[in-house]
Write a protein that binds this DNA or RNA. Structure first.
Lengths: 197, 197
DNA sequence: ATTTGGTTTAACCATTTGGTTAACAAATGT
DNA sequence: ACATTTGTTAACCAAATGGTTAAACCAAAT
């Protein structure tokens, strides 16, 4: 593994855990097992290192989101595939959702920056599809944007609010993960039941 | 307004916007229109000031949550009241949910600390109630914890992930607030449809 | 008028933190 | 063999930051 990779992975871990402001360059260096000057040699400064890490992190999630937006499946199929693949993926990176949401809120300029990327998830197509399936009488007449919010909420929130949730409903990490595993199917069934005509 | 109150409100604003690590004592002092030394005179140090602000913030939300846990209403009634009161309340403090989730994740010791408070929201009663209504055949057989997660997810997530969401589905702040207004009823209807037998 | 108590401030301090420099080592090309 | 580029380190630096101190202010009590 190259030094650059060691730094990157260390930074990924530290930033994810502490956020941009909370992360210390020294800690990243220690975690990577190299000298602090090396950080600035490989990645000019904290901002650039963070940006690399952040964009990479978001890049890991974007495909899961794009899947739901771009594929040719029916709404039902899309929801099933999305919840399943998103939860499966994020169970391996349990802190990713909170990390992204937190930094997006703390640096609103990131939102506009990421929206400019060409692979930006664009929901307009999905919204049209929902409107269409409503017209066809497959779905109940609902606001497509609300449905979209539902899908994200039910899938992403448990991970984003992990600490609070675990504390509140009193579950260990194992039980939590099991709940999330169960949730793959559960979300799909709940949503379908509530929108199918 | 006393100096202490001025400081507290300023700290509330700054911490909410920048988080614990991101907030600067000088900024809070400026925002409060007083000298930095005054902060340390009134609230010994950053941690204590933050703790005061954070516990107060959580205290604002706890009643909304306790309502759903403690009242004598049916599940249906509880969900209706919760979504309505929570969203109404949080529309006046749009950054509160993200603030609390963020700091809970960044300082896991807060979770245990807040769980010790006597007014801690305890969902066991609600879970029993759900199990009971399932037995009575009012609700479909679902995992009560999943239902609880749904309620929180659908209500809290849009606020917690505000920046990302607004960017992704391309809505202005006004449109967002309108969606949230609409959501008070919407969530209730969606959930009821999906769990009513 | 003077003391007394809390309140407020300007100036200061120690530490932390992101970042730099200059020297050194190890490849790499000629 | 030698020069040049690339990788790596220890020591250092300036700015930022949380926190302290000692003096000034000011209202109420004596």
């Amino acid at each position: 593994m190259t030094t650059e990779e060691k730094i990157f992975e260390a930074a990924f871990r530290v930033f994810q855990l502490k956020g941009f402001k909370g992360a210390r360059m020294q800690e990243i260096a220690d975690e990577a097992g190299i000298n602090k000057a090396m950080l600035h040699y490989c990645f000019k400064n904290k901002e650039l290192l963070f940006e690399a890490v952040f964009m990479n992190a978001f890049g890991k999630l974007a495909p899961q989101i794009n899947e739901i937006f771009k594929s040719q499946d029916s709404i039902f199929e899309k929801i099933k595939k999305f919840t399943d693949s998103y939860i499966s993926f994020v169970m391996n990176y349990p802190f990713l959702p909170q990390f992204i949401i937190q930094e997006m809120n703390n640096n609103p300029e990131f939102v506009t920056k990421f929206l400019k990327k060409e692979n930006r998830p664009d929901p307009t197509k999905l919204i049209h599809q929902i409107e269409n399936e409503i017209k066809l009488g497959i779905l109940k007449p609902i606001n497509p944007k609300q449905l979209l919010i539902d899908i994200f909420s039910m899938t992403v929130f448990p991970f984003a609010a992990q600490a609070l949730l675990k504390g509140m409903i009193q579950v260990s990490n194992e039980e939590f993960m099991q709940l999330m595993e169960e949730r793959k199917k559960y979300i799909y069934e709940q949503i379908i039941t509530s929108i199918k005509k």
